[in-house]
Structures are given as C-alpha cells and as structure tokens.
Design a protein around this nucleic acid. Structure first.
Lengths: 298, 298
DNA sequence: GTTCCGCATGAATCGATAG
DNA sequence: ACTATCGATTCATGCGGAA
C-alpha cells in the first residue's frame, strides 16, 4: 500500500466515522440527469453548489440546423446567459472547463471563441488557463490550403484565484532521460545546495530521490475515441477523468450542462463523484439513464 | 555527405543547367539585414515584395532588459502600425506567421493576443489558421494553481484565400504505429502467400510498402534549443525551416521584422531563399552579419 | 567511433519582501 | 496601496569531455 492509498483509506474511515455510520456504510454517489433546456434547468440549481463544470457545448456551425445549430455571429450572445448561470452555481473554489474549437469557414478560422473568452471575462470569470487537447488520431482529410486540425481548446475559467487543484492526482511517469541521469542529478543537487547554504538541502533531495513521476504540463495527449456512441461530438473518457481528478475530490459535484452521450456523468460516477447533467434531446437522456445510477441532487 | 545534402547538390546542378549557365554558376541568394526601427525600415520595402513573413516579436512584458518591454495594455496599439506595413509588403499569395504566447499574470492569462488577432483581422488580414508549437522541454517550475506552459501560438495570416502552400515539402515519416503494423503485416502476408500461393493480399501490401510519408497536422512538436547563443530565446531552426518549406520555393524572399539572433535569415539562406531581416540591437545585427552572406534586396 | 556523464540553462510563475 | 525585485520550485534538452 502506498502512502497515498493509506491516506485515502484513512480519510474514508474518518469520513464514515463522522457520519456515525458503520464501516460498511458507503455514501453512494448520485448522477442527476435532467431533460430540458440548459438555461432553464440551470436556474433551478442553488448558488455555489458545483465543484467542477466540464462541458463541450455545441460548436457554432452555419450549416447544421439540427443539434444546437448556433451561428458563429450569434454564438456569444447565445452562450452568455448560460455563462451567467454557471458563474452563479459554481463554488468560489470550483473550476469551469470549456472544451471548444472554432471551425474553418471560407478559408478563415472563426473568431467567436476569442470573443467568447473576452465576453466571459467581462461577465466576471477569470480566464485562468488554456489547456491544449492534442488529438492523436485527428479527423483525416486533405485540403489545398490547410492541414488536419489535431487540437482543441480546453479553456479554464474560475470565480476566484484560490480554486482547488489536486495536482498530485494527475502526475505522470518521468521521461526516459531520467533512467541514466537522475541518480547523478541528485548528487549534483547535493553539492550545489551544500555549497550555497548547507541548510534545507535534505528537503530538496527527498523530492528527487527515487523520483518516478513528474507533474504534467498544459498539453494533454489523448486519442479521440473511435467507438461511435450515436453522438457526434463525444470526447474520450480520459478527458473529463483528468479534470475530475485534478479539480475535485470524492463526493464532490460535477456538472455538465451539455451532457450529450453522458461521458462526464458516467466517468464522474465511476470516480465516486456526484454529477448533474442537462440534455435537451430525449434519446440522449434515455441513453444516459441506462448507464448511471440516478439520484436527485437538487 | 548525407543523402539529403547530396540530393540538394544534385538539384543545384540541375537548376544551373536549366538557366543555361555552366556548372559553376550558382544563383546566389542574398540575406539583407538592416539595423534600426522595425516600422521605419519596413516602409522602405516595396509593395507586394515578400513571399513569407516569419517572426517572433517581443512578447508583452518580456525581455525588458533588451527590448524595453511593451505592456499588455499597449501591445495591440504598438503592433498595429507594423501589421499595416507587413500587409503592404506581403505578396497577395504570401503568408505571415506570427509566433507569440501570452503570459500568466496574477493568476490569469493576458488577453492581448486574442485582441491582437481581432485587430489584425479588422486591419484586413485573414486569420487563416492557428498552429500549435508544442514545446516538450518547457520551462520547469511548480505553482499551486498552474502547470508548466508547454505550447505557443503560431498564427497564420494571409492577404487572400489563394495563398501558396507546398504541402508535399513538409511530409513526415509515417508514425511508428504504422511501421510496427506494416512489418507485422508483411510477415503475415509472407506466410499467407506461401500457404495460399498468392491470395491477392499482396496487392494491398504493395500499397502500404511504398508509403513512407504522410501529411502533417497543425501541431508541431519541437524542443526549444538550449545551446549557448547570445540571444536569450531563439526559436529552434526547425521552426522557420518548416514554414519556409511549406510556404516558399527557392529564390523566394523571406522577411523577419524582429530578426533577433537571425535564425530565420540563417535558415532561409541555407535553404536557398532570399531573406530580409530587421533588428534594432546592434550586437545582434553584427552577430547575424557574421553568419550570413549579405546582399541588398531593396 | 559510440556511449555515458557532468553541467548549464531555458520568452516561467508565485508569494514574500523591500522601497 | 502599489510596484520592483528576489528566492524557491522544477523538467528536458544540447554540448563537450571522458570512458
């Protein structure tokens, strides 16, 4: 058992104890999927209720009139009322992850995403970071003046600067360079720190000795999922999983206001997080209900 | 001599031959580096003169010691007069590649790059594409609310939709997944062919065997160069090289209005492209002059 | 000739301290 | 209060000399 696992186990015992239950009593997480208009249902959620919002809204598209066909020109105005509700329901230490990418139209990239970022900031959001989702197997195709689009934006917004971030939960294996070099590196550090001030170097060393994982950066390398789920724009499980690990703890509440095929809810529940989803198409709601354990959260 | 060098040499001979000259007559490319203010010198360049602009301007609030540093608030106003001249000197079928990345400040990303894109569009530029430069060895560090920044923007702007793009020049070796699969396939194919006396499967294989390169996508994976140059942050040679291959032919003219240590000019000349550079710091101009064959182009 | 090791160093960011 | 400076933190690379 690792220290981390022991720590988590200890937390669970403590948690159950505080509730006064016996050790077999597990707090079951709930997934609350609602059918209907996004803005309307958002208004029913209490203030400061959500720990993490992860969503991939319908992208603007001039041609498609079917699912969420919002034109680029109207996109910002369409999204802002939703952004306002999201700002209200998010806890002060929560985060909002928006997966979006502008399409090329008549040879140009649309600018509505840039305008959306500026508008959300004006609305009160902090634009904390832009992660890149690097899609390993991007959509194939060839055009005379454009290569395949192999990345999407993952925009992080916050209500305050002091949001929760559990960085240790997403550490990754250290690069190959370390195999032959790290042992010596720590020796160098020893010498350097001894020469500098002689104190506190042991703390540094403890960070490096036997190091096998490092913190990731702001580029996520994930394949798009090949299995079609009857939904046009499903992102891979690993995407919400990464942000749920990074920004929430067990029994927190995750919200996806454009639930689609329900990836976020399903992943959240598998990770013992509560979740709320909103979806306007009945077929998708039924699909989600078949994959989760339902329960009302508000 | 590598195969690549030999191939290039062979091409040069052929090229000279087509011109009717003897083999010693080489059309020499010129690199024209000028010391001075960017906007001032740009005004001396004729209209529709440049095939490709590749540059990395000083970012806002960076390089304060060397370039003085432009504040994020003033950045767009500072850049626009330069953008206007760049628009004038670029050929209608040329491209403009702008390498830039906003920094984090007080927990937020600055928005001046977004505003710059919108402003350049208003100025008449088409925002054709945003490439991602993924930096594997990004600057280290750890903060409570942020991971390391491992990517920069490579913004492509054009004057018209019908710009030159030589996609075949930047094809890349097919991924390792294909190599492994291809070897396995051919082994299986061998066995099958032996067993079945040629089932037609070999025909498919022949399609695969010739295929060694594929078109890249819009994410570039390049390490930053950490060699001891006298310029603080030169981008790697491979960066301008890729865009010069993609957007120009031999003897075209490449412009870098913020030449810095001269990477763009040096690479352009090594690829038999003419180049123009502007740099305001005398030491860098001298450094560049020591690395190129000079010649006036305007 | 290869491989390995020592070393330097990056367009970083935050929080604390100093003026 | 507001700005300027500094220390602490951290990972992947190239280069040059040594084995």
């Amino acid at each position: 058992m690792t220290i981390k696992e022991a720590s988590e186990l200890n937390y669970r015992y403590t948690y159950s104890g505080l509730r006064g239950g016996n050790l077999n009593e597990v707090v079951e997480t709930k997934a609350d999927i609602r059918l209907g208009n996004c803005e309307t249902i958002l208004k029913k959620i209490p203030d400061n209720f959500i720990d993490l919002i992860v969503t991939s809204p319908p992208y603007a598209d001039r041609r498609k009139q079917t699912y969420g066909g919002v034109s680029p020109e109207r996109y910002v105005d369409w999204f802002l009322p939703i952004g306002k509700e999201l700002l209200r329901v998010l806890k002060p230490d929560g985060s909002f992850i928006l997966n979006i990418k502008e399409k090329a139209d008549k040879g140009e990239r649309s600018t509505y995403v840039l305008e959306l970022i500026l508008a959300l900031r004006k609305q009160g959001w902090l634009w904390t970071e832009e992660f890149i989702w690097r899609k390993k197997n991007s959509y194939p195709g060839k055009w005379p003046n454009r290569f395949r689009d192999a990345w999407e934006r993952l925009l992080q917004f916050n209500k305050t600067k002091n949001f929760n971030m559990y960085q240790d939960a997403v550490k990754v294996p250290i690069g190959d360079w370390a195999n032959g070099r790290l042992k010596n590196l720590s020796e160098i550090d020893k010498i350097r720190d001894n020469a500098k001030n002689g104190s506190g170097f042991g703390k540094n060393i403890s960070n490096w000795l036997g190091k096998e994982t490092v913190y990731p950066d702001n580029v996520l390398h994930l394949p798009t999922e090949c299995n079609n789920k009857n939904h046009s724009a499903a992102f891979p499980d690993a995407l919400p999983e990464w942000f749920i690990k990074l920004f929430t703890q067990e029994n927190d509440i995750v919200l996806d206001p454009f639930a689609g095929s329900g990836t976020t809810l399903r992943v959240a529940q598998s990770m013992s997080r509560n979740s709320i989803g909103i979806e306007i198409i009945p077929e998708y709601v039924n699909l989600i209900k078949s994959q989760i354990t339902q329960g009302r959260l508000f």
